[in-house]
Amino acid sequence: MAAVQPQLEKESGDDSLLPLVHDIIKCMDKDSQDVHQELAKLKTKIQEAREQISNMPGIDSSPVEQQQQLGMLRDQVRNKNQLLHKYKGLCMFDVPKAS
């Protein structure tokens, strides 16, 4: 997970496909032969983006649903902690004091 995180953050800035489309249009304007290469770049970029999306964790639900699940989990942990605290600190017997 720690290794994935920097990669995701690095790519978050260059998600746009517009620069590649712009390059293609420029090549077309110039009637350059590089247009095919640029087109291949765009295809590769789209394919890579698909793979990246498939491998991204935690996006199988909408943000709203995910927040609900997160809230439920937090509630669970809090309730279980409270339960354990209650039972561990509970004095089961009133031990008579030695007088």
């Binding site: 978050s12 991204m56 964790p57 935690g58 996006i59 995910q66 927040q67 937090r74």
Partner: peptide, 17 residues
């Protein structure tokens, strides 16, 4: 994509929880 990044972080937190 930004939302997905945030969801990834939340996912990490959920795994810990």
């Amino acid at each position: 994509m930004d939302v997905a990044q945030q969801q990834g972080k939340v996912h990490q937190e959920m795994q810990l929880l």
